[in-house]
Write a protein that binds this DNA or RNA. Structure first.
Lengths: 206, 206
DNA sequence: TATAAAAGCTACTAATTAGTAGCAAAATAG
DNA sequence: CTATTTTGCTACTAATTAGTAGCTTTTATA
């Protein structure tokens, strides 16, 4: 069946549960954040005991690190399977759209920037840092190309564009709109993309 | 001296210390966030003991609520003293510029959106909610006028504009740029304003 | 059915921290 | 100089929670 079909039933079950744990972690992280998420929360959401949880992940930091890595890998996979003929700006737009959709469907927790504590923790996680650097490298190249072709503002430093772009993936306006407006998810995505690329002024000549 | 000059020296000193406590709270909130900020942190930053701190504020929630209220009041004061002849879009731009400058100078902690816990806490704080609603009302009117005059995109729902505008005041891109780019504070402000209003595409016709 | 091994759990520990009781020191008044 | 009040502090408590020791149950095997 799988490429490594040698996994016993037991090991398959183990892997399955590991995924269930990461799913629960992602959801809890999303609405409580790192500091308020307890290992008991995670264990009981999955329906196992805390010591069983520790059979899979050796610490809270490790668990959260793996959850974040899985998210980044999801982004990387999405990027890799995009049509190679798309223009850089179209790739950037598609990635942001994907990230917003994942978030609106409850998948993505708030990203590191939020708290110095969490940022430091992730910075110490070499596996995580490696993934971030790789993805960042790919996005940097896309931004540079899009600036050259005039699809992104060439007068802005590329740092500014890249960091602003990242910030849009975790823009709190998304949660506010979901909670307080009557817009549905697809409308929210459409408007957020427009605001990101065309700004609040909207497209115009002057 | 003051309008209520009846304050005794003792009461003046009390008021002064209260301000010092709020300053410390704001700074600590900024870099540790609510959950990791301890009352011992605040007390020792001010150079007093924890029980003395509790003479001023009856709980951690109360303390943080007052710090947030002071921030909002600062924004309200700034808004009120702006030139009445400015166009709505100029007022919005000036307010955002002010907020970014306050943040870059270390003043403003991350806003509520960050964590459900903090948001709930502030929602229960009626004094805080009152201030927010008042400021929000003023900004809503400015957005509506700017949309009518064509300075803000009239095709976007006003919710989307308002929430996106709020999000820019606590955009994590600011901290990233301050930490990892070579831009100085004024350059960061200029670029963030441009990205907010003109977007990542930059101004253009199509 | 008896035995061995694995999986999972209850119930603990050590550390942290919001909030407080009650004492000590200083200032003020008589 | 003594009495009273105010101010501030040390040292506690109760609650929470990451992480673990060691027992119990289940499963697999012979």
């Amino acid at each position: 069946m799988s490429i490594l079909g040698k996994l016993s039933f037991k090991d398959q079950a183990f892997k399955l549960r590991e995924n269930a744990i990461l799913d629960a972690t992602t959801m809890i992280l999303k609405d409580k954040g790192f500091d308020l998420m307890t290992m008991d929360d995670v264990a009981s959401a999955v329906g196992i005991s805390k010591p069983s949880l520790y059979k899979h992940f050796k610490s809270k930091e490790d668990l959260v690190g793996e959850a974040m890595i899985r998210l980044i890998d999801g982004a990387g996979d999405f990027l890799d399977q995009l049509d190679k003929d798309l223009k850089p700006i179209e790739v950037l737009s598609a990635m942001l759209e994907w990230a917003l959709r994942v978030r609106l469907e409850g998948g993505m927790p708030f990203l590191p920037s939020t708290s110095a504590h969490v940022r430091d923790m992730l910075t110490r996680n070499l596996k995580y840092v490696g993934r971030v650097l790789k993805l960042n490298y790919q996005l940097e190249k896309l931004v540079a190309k899009a600036q050259k072709s005039g699809d992104l503002d060439a007068s802005l430093p590329s740092d500014v564009i890249l960091f602003s772009y990242y910030s849009r993936t975790c823009d709190p306006a998304v949660e506010f709109l979901q909670r307080y407006s009557k817009l549905d998810n697809e409308q929210i995505i459409k408007h957020m993309l427009q605001v990101c690329f065309a700004g609040l002024h909207g497209p115009r000549c002057d």
